[in-house]
């Protein structure tokens, strides 16, 4: 139940875009139409669900202060946490490459839709951000980390799809001042939606 609450909280209260602004670069660049936005959103969710538990296990059994004690008592005072940034990003980059290869081999149709987005994901701040938040918050188990990853992924998906839908309509129906067209107005809309999402902050779950 605890984990389910975390999942819901990650979607609404700790929304990756509206609360932390992570993954904004691709969020702005790819939110021009709903279909591609959905593709990227699914890819990001997928990567978060995969990388978060892996990085969690890495953190607990290798990187944390005293984490190596399972090797024997003489290793119990080793602290490798300064390596965590490099390890996390290496895992993410390697997983992206791996997933790209697997998807290409086994599901060419999925690859055709996700293909161009997969390489973009290695440098999506939302993925690394998820791992760093995981490190900061001391999750209890790999399953908890997976739930949080799924929640954050879906929060990102939700955000990019809603913004893409708004932008699609904006492009055809509204008369925006010239200098604000394109990214300017997207920023303002994201800001307004962020304020709307802040109303979830009061919810206790």
């Amino acid at each position: 139940m605890e984990d389910f609450n975390l999942f819901i909280r990650s979607i609404f209260v700790d929304n990756m875009i509206f609360a932390y602004f992570l993954g904004m670069c691709s969020f702005i660049a790819v939110s021009k139409n709903v279909k591609t936005a959905l593709g990227l959103g699914v890819a990001v969710t997928f990567m978060l669900v995969i990388t978060l538990p892996i990085n969690y296990l890495l953190e607990t059994y290798i990187l944390k202060d005293g984490a190596l004690s399972w090797l024997g008592p003489e290793y119990s005072n080793i602290d490798l946490s300064f390596l965590s940034l490099i390890m996390f990003i290496a895992v993410i980059a390697a997983m992206t490459q791996l997933v790209e290869m697997v998807v290409e081999k086994f599901s060419p149709s999925l690859y055709a839709t996700l293909g161009i987005f997969l390489p973009l994901i290695a440098v999506n701040c939302a993925i690394l951000g998820g791992s760093l938040f995981m490190q900061q918050r001391d999750f209890g188990s790999a399953w908890t980390a997976t739930c949080a990853g799924a929640g954050w992924g879906i929060s990102w998906l939700l955000a990019i799809v809603t913004i893409a839908a708004i932008r699609e309509r904006l492009a055809s129906y509204s008369n925006i001042p010239k200098p604000l067209r394109g990214i300017g107005i997207t920023f303002i809309i994201t800001g307004l939606m962020g304020i709307a999402f802040m109303s979830f902050l009061g919810i206790k779950i």
């Binding site: 602004f21 200098p179 604000l180 300017g184 107005i185 800001g191 962020g194 304020i195 802040m198």
Partner: peptide, 19 residues
């Protein structure tokens, strides 16, 4: 102080810069 205002401030900078 709230995070969404950062977006709107950047949007204002973009607006001025592009004008």
């Amino acid at each position: 102080i709230l995070p969404p205002m950062a977006l709107i401030t950047v949007a204002c900078i973009i607006w001025i810069h592009r004008s």
